[in-house]
Design a protein around this nucleic acid. Structure first.
Lengths: 318, 318
DNA sequence: CCTATTAATACTCAACTTGAGTATATATCT
DNA sequence: AGATATATACTCAAGTTGAGTATTAATAGG
C-alpha cells in the first residue's frame, strides 16, 4: 500500500430525519423485509459538494424530495468494528451523523423509505404513560449482572454509577437527555443486537428494541439526545409544527420528543410569557370541549432573546 | 480518476488544547516566526487508530507529552476553500476539531510549540475589564457598512439581526457563548485575515486579531464557545485546576474562560450549595487580606446530580 | 332545555432561586 | 493602632417554578 493511500478514508453522511405526527416521533428509515432498518446514507463527494452540509442536503433532496427545514451536524464516528458488520476490509468508512427536522410529508418518493416511530428502536425511552416495563423486567436485572461481572472492584463502582445515572435510582430521577449514554451502556452490557453483531459479546442476554445497520442506531440515539436538549434553549420544535397549531398540539409534540409528560397550565404560561407563540384569533374545531385557539410561532422571538428558554449564570454589571 | 478513489478524502484531527494559568486562557499552538500560528494537527490513520478519539490522544501524547484529562469532539469541517490557502489540489482534507483540557505543563517538549493567550485571536471576546474598545472602534463601523452593502433589503434585515445578536445592542446583552457566530460574521464582513486569504474578499477592511492557518481559528472559536457553554452544566473547569485551590482562583479561571466577571459572593454560594467543592481545612498563604481556605473538587457530585448546574424543564409526576 | 362531561384558559400561592447588596472576620502594611 | 485588602456570612426583594384550584365554553345525552 502506497503512502499516498495510507491515510485515506471515505466519508459517509448519515441523516436522522425526524418528524412528529399524531404524537409519534418518527425517523425516516430505509426498510427492506427481513433486514435491519437503515438511516438514509450518502457518500460525501469532495468534487461536487462544497461543504458537508450542502452534500447532505443535496442527496437528501434527490432521494426523498423532502425539504429539510433544519439540519445540524451531530457527530463524526470512526470506530473500527462498529460500522461494518464484518471485520474491516477495503477502505475505512467514517460517518458524519446529522439531525434534520421536517414537517411530515404525505408521501415518500423513494419506495423502500418509510417513517418509523423512534421508540421502536428505544422502547425504554418513552415515559409518557408510565415507566416502561422493559426497564424493570429486562434491563435492570441484566445490568445488575453486568455490574457484578466487572473484573475489578473499581470497575464495579464505575459501572454501578453509570447504571444509576442512566436509569435513575435512589433519589436520582430520570434524565431524558441521556439517550446516548443509555444506548452505549446497553451495548456494552450486550443488551442490544449490535453488540453481538459487532463481536463484542458472544451471546446476547437479550436484544432490546429494533436494531439498525452499521452504527445507525447510535447516530439516532445521538440525534434524539441532541433534539431533546436543544429544544430547551432553541425554538426548534416549530420546525416540526404546521403554521397554526393549538397549544395542546404543541405540548404533545414536545412530549413526544422528550418522552415525558408536562404540566399543561405551566406549559402554556411558559410559551406565552416567553413570547414564543401568539394567538391567531382563529379557533380549532374539535370533537369535545371548549375550542382551542390556534397559535403561530413568533419568529421575532429570535431577535428579542438570545436563546429562548436558557438561563444564564449570574453576570455582574461592570 | 477511477470510481474507487472518487469519494476519497483524508481526515485531519485538529486539537484546541486549552489550559488556564494566571487568569489567561491559553491554547497550544505551533508557532513559526513570520508564519500564522496553527493548532496541532495530525492525520487520522485508519490502519492504526481504532477510533477518532484514540487517534487524537495518540498523536497528542507523542507530540506534546501532555496528558489530556478531557477531550471532546467539536465539529467536522469540510468546506472547500477554507482549509487550503490555495484552491483545491490533490486530496480534499476534512478536519475533525477537538477540544481538550489540561493543567498547564511547565515545559513543552516540542520545540515550536507554545501556549498562547486565546484572546490574541479573539480580542473582542474579553469583557472582563470593560467592553473591548476594538468593538466600537473597529468592528461596529465596518459591520454597519456590511449591513448597508447588502444586495437586497431582505439580506439587510438578516444582517442587521445577526449584528445585533452577535454584538448586542438596544436591550440585547452580550452573550459570551456566541463566539463562533461572531467569528463567522467577521469573516463574512471581511474583518479577519482568513477571509482575504480564502479569496472571499478582495481587500480586508481590517485584520482583527491574530489569524491562524487553514480553518484553525474557526475551530478555536468553536472550542471556546463549547467550553463556555459546557462549563455551565458540567464540572469541566476542574480539569483546568490544581487539586487544591481557593474559591477566588476557581472564579478567576471561570471568568478567564467566559470573558466576563462574576459576583463573588454569589459564585461562592453556588459552588457550595451545589456541592461542587469542599473545604480542605488548609489555607492559602497570601500577601494580603484574610487567608482563603483551600478547596477541592467534590468528585461525588457527578453521582449525586445528573448535571451540576443545569435546570431542567417542568416535569409532571405521573 | 338542563345537566354532565370535556377541554381550554385564568388565577393562586408557597417554595425556591437569583441578583445585588451590607456586615463581619482575619490577615498584612505602615 | 489604624488603614487596607480579602474572605466569608448574612439579608432581602424580585423573579421563577411546581402544583394546584377556579372559571369558561363547547358537546352529548336525556
Amino acid at each position: 500500500m502506497s503512502a499516498k493511500t495510507k491515510h485515506v478514508v471515505s466519508i459517509g453522511l448519515s441523516a436522522a430525519i425526524v418528524s412528529v405526527a399524531d404524537e409519534r416521533p418518527s425517523v425516516l428509515v430505509v426498510h427492506h423485509a427481513g433486514a435491519e432498518d437503515a438511516l438514509p446514507f450518502g457518500p460525501f463527494d469532495p468534487l461536487n459538494h462544497r461543504t458537508l452540509d450542502s452534500g447532505l442536503r443535496k442527496w437528501v433532496g434527490e432521494q426523498t424530495y423532502l425539504d429539510l427545514g433544519y439540519a445540524e451536524q451531530l457527530y463524526t464516528f470512526g470506530d473500527r468494528g462498529r460500522h461494518l458488520p464484518t471485520p474491516d476490509e477495503g477502505a475505512r468508512v467514517v460517518s458524519v451523523g446529522y439531525l434534520a427536522l421536517t414537517r411530515q410529508a404525505r408521501e415518500l418518493k423513494a419506495p423502500d423509505t418509510r417513517w418509523s416511530d423512534w421508540y421502536r428502536y428505544f422502547p425504554w425511552e418513552d415515559w409518557r404513560d408510565t415507566k416502561p416495563a422493559i426497564i424493570d423486567q429486562s434491563i435492570m436485572p441484566v445490568l445488575k449482572q453486568f455490574v457484578k461481572a466487572a473484573p475489578t472492584s473499581e470497575v464495579t463502582e464505575l459501572r454501578r454509577d453509570r447504571v444509576r445515572l442512566c436509569f435513575g435510582a435512589d433519589g436520582l430521577s430520570w434524565d431524558e437527555e441521556k439517550v446516548l449514554e443509555r444506548y452505549e451502556l446497553l451495548y456494552e452490557a450486550g443488551l442490544v443486537q449490535e453488540a453481538v453483531r459487532d463481536g463484542r459479546k458472544t451471546s446476547a442476554s437479550a436484544a432490546l428494541g429494533a436494531s439498525m445497520t452499521f452504527d445507525h442506531r447510535r447516530i439516532l440515539a445521538t440525534a434524539i439526545a441532541r433534539l431533546r436538549g436543544k429544544m430547551k434553549y432553541r425554538p426548534v420544535v416549530f420546525e416540526l409544527m404546521p403554521p397554526n397549531f393549538t397549544l395542546l398540539e404543541l405540548q404533545r409534540t414536545v412530549e413526544a420528543i422528550s418522552g415525558i409528560r408536562l404540566h399543561k397550565q405551566n406549559f402554556r404560561r411558559l410559551m406565552e410569557d416567553q413570547g414564543l407563540v401568539e394567538g391567531t384569533g382563529k379557533f380549532a374545531t374539535q370533537a369535545r370541549g371548549r375550542p382551542a385557539e390556534l397559535f403561530r410561532f413568533r419568529r421575532e422571538v429570535l431577535r428579542e432573546r438570545p436563546a429562548p428558554g436558557v438561563r444564564l449564570g449570574t453576570r455582574k454589571t461592570i
